[in-house]
């Protein structure tokens, strides 16, 4: 029974990590748009390349945030949460006298 419970925990964490990384779609589209507009702007005014590039980098790094949230959530679900949940489960079983 314990193996099944731990298996369900690990399976759920892995699926959750996979779903969390869907968040990468948003920044991908957004940064693509930003770069496209920056290319247009540089094409129209090549002399403003420096300021456009620096603004673009800052904007991209800020737009990345949501993707990074997904990544951190995925990382937590892969490496931190399973151990924590299994510990909670085992402690609860020990407290109830099952184990």
């Amino acid at each position: 029974m314990l193996e099944l419970a731990i298996g369900i925990i690990l399976c759920g964490c892995a699926i959750g990590a996979g779903l969390a990384l869907i968040a990468g779609i948003g920044p991908g589209i957004g940064e693509g748009n930003a770069v496209a507009k920056a290319c247009e702007a540089i094409g129209r005014q090549p002399e403003s390349k420096g300021s456009v590039m620096s603004t673009l980098f800052i904007g991209c790094a800020l737009a990345e945030t949501t993707g990074v949230y997904g990544f951190v959530t995925g990382l937590l679900l892969m490496f931190v949460v399973p151990r924590m949940l299994v510990n909670i489960l085992i402690n609860a079983l020990v407290a109830n006298g099952v184990l």
Binding site: A61, L62, E64, T65, V68, Y69, F71, V72, L75
Partner: peptide
């Protein structure tokens, strides 16, 4: 999370 996530 922004800083940590990017580096990691």
């Amino acid at each position: 999370f922004r800083h940590y996530g990017n580096i990691v």
